[in-house]
Design a binder for these strands. Structure first.
Ligand SMILES: [Mg+2]
Length: 470
DNA sequence: CCCATCACG
DNA sequence: ACGTACGTGATGGGG
């Protein structure tokens, strides 16, 4: 491995990813046991402490078995991220401008319709003013949700839309306003002279070890609605290139199979079955070809819910079924995937009794909330613990893939480069002539980043926009 | 500055 | 009686 300079921020994060505010003052106190304020820690003083900090944190990393993940993954990822950020990604600004004009016109129409239905003009974007219109003036009811008043969120408005035409219009308005203000009208302001946007990937924010993306966030670009997909079409490769998008299929559920060794889950992934249909056959006790689309949809929600520690309440409200039914589905899931049930319990007990959990690459995180006597805090932390090894190991895996893929691209003298990472997906800008070779390279490095009990599979698409590459 | 909301995996 | 699915970031309202 290359000789890399010490990185205090990454070292401190690897040692304690829970620390939300790792200021120099806190780090110096924590590792050198010296109490000094940020002001007292002058550059000159910090310079004198630097060597000692490196020595102490290095020893700590090695003692805790964290040196490898720190050095070979986190530190090795730094230049890879630097290249991604520096490359940026091209936007079709003219197209976004056209889209903006069209959608602003629609927004204006919606606005007038909303005022008409409300009988007055008000700030639609103010939840407070909207509450007054919906719940006082129109007397609509949900009885549900309060914090600082009645909630007007999408769940509530969707329910209210069955009783009055206004909430549906508000939902349409919100959807357009969100996409316009966050993406369509904002991204064009952030392009460089070549029409490319450059995000910043933060390596020390998400306690699971995931990356986060800011300024602009390129990890939450819309895709779930028609208009959202139009925004994805604005992400385009430079002249002479195509986009190659490669994403892991159900990586967290495969990790669930790997860690639990549940026979049903292993079998499903080893035979490359449709996992949601497989779960449906198990919880509804019927053959795969008899599973209805509705049953598959329920099974899909259960599959994803389980890795978040979802309970019957959430499942019932999301699927519009009774608590009793929801509980029966979850019970059936854990009965048929018995080793998953055992694994989830072991995550809780290990996190509580050993104090921490470990990922596939040896990343660690503690769960202080499991010492709480407050049931809500305890249960919330238990859910974090149940999700952590899966989400965090998935983050480990794509990081390894990025490091070795980047190296292979450079070693092979390719022009292709990674331009985006979205948790389980990589997007590359690929000269047309390199398409075939780089497709193989990307798949190879992603699928073989680690070896699991089940295959890691990657789906790849190529296209003239991010949307088209999916 | 916090809250509510909603965009993504 | 309470609270109820993990991890993020950006926006607009309102104090
Ligand atoms: Mg995927």
């Amino acid at each position: 491995m290359a000789n890399r300079p010490f990185d205090l921020e990454l070292a401190a994060f690897t040692l304690d990813p829970n620390d939300r505010e790792p200021s120099m003052s806190r780090i110096v106190a924590k590792y050198l046991d010296i109490e000094l304020s940020e002001e007292e820690l002058t550059p000159a003083l910090l310079a004198t402490l630097a060597g000692k900090l490196e020595e102490v944190l290095t020893k700590e990393l090695k003692d805790k078995g964290l040196w490898t993940v720190y050095h070979d993954t986190e530190l090795a990822l730094v230049p890879v991220l630097a290249r991604i950020e520096s490359a940026g990604v091209q936007l079709d600004v003219a197209y976004l401008k056209t889209l903006s004009t069209k959608l602003h016109a629609e927004l204006l129409t919606l606005e007038e319709e909303i005022y008409g239905l409300s009988g007055e003009r008000f700030n639609i974007q103010s939840p407070k003013q909207l509450q007054t219109i919906l719940f006082e003036k129109l007397g609509l009811t949900t009885g549900k949700k309060t914090k600082t008043g009645h909630s007007t969120n999408v769940q509530v408005l969707t329910e209210l839309a069955n009783h009055h035409p206004l909430p549906g219009k508000i939902l349409e308005y919100r959807h357009l306003a969100k996409l316009l203000s966050t993406y369509i009208d904002t991204l064009p302001k952030q392009v460089d002279s070549k029409g490319r946007v450059h995000t910043t990937y933060n390596q020390t924010i998400a306690s699971t070890g995931r990356l986060s993306s800011t300024d602009p966030n390129l990890q939450n670009i819309p895709i779930r609605t028609d208009i959202g997909r139009k925004i994805r079409q604005a992400f385009i490769p430079m002249e002479g290139c195509v986009f190659l998008a490669a994403d892991y299929s159900q990586i967290e559920l495969r990790l669930l199979a790997h860690f639990s060794k549940d026979p049903n889950l292993l079998e499903a992934f080893r035979t490359n079955e449709d996992i949601h249909t497989r779960t449906a056959t198990l919880i509804f006790d019927k053959a795969a070809d008899l599973v209805t689309p509705d049953e598959r949809r329920i099974a899909k929600t259960v599959n994803f819910g389980v890795v978040y520690g979802m309970g019957p309440f959430k499942l019932a409200t999301d699927l519009h079924i009774s608590m009793k039914e929801a509980k029966s589905f979850i019970d059936a899931y854990f009965a048929r995937y018995a080793e998953v049930s055992a694994l989830m319990q072991s995550f809780e007990t290990t996190a509580r009794d050993e104090g921490y959990l470990t990922t596939i690459l040896g990343r660690k995180k503690t769960f202080p909330g499991l010492s709480s006597k407050n049931r809500v805090v305890y249960e919330a932390t238990k859910r974090e613990a149940m999700n952590y090894p899966l989400q965090s190991s998935a983050a480990d895996i794509i990081k390894r893939a990025m490091i070795t893929l980047d190296e292979a691209l450079r070693e092979g003298r390719y022009t292709s480069r990674i331009v985006l990472q979205v948790h389980d997906e990589l997007v590359l800008e690929v000269p047309r002539a390199e398409t075939e070779a780089v497709t193989h390279l990307v798949v190879e490095h992603m699928q073989n980043a680690v070896q699991l009990e089940v295959p890691l599979t990657v789906s790849v698409g190529i296209g003239d926009s991010w949307m088209a590459a999916h």
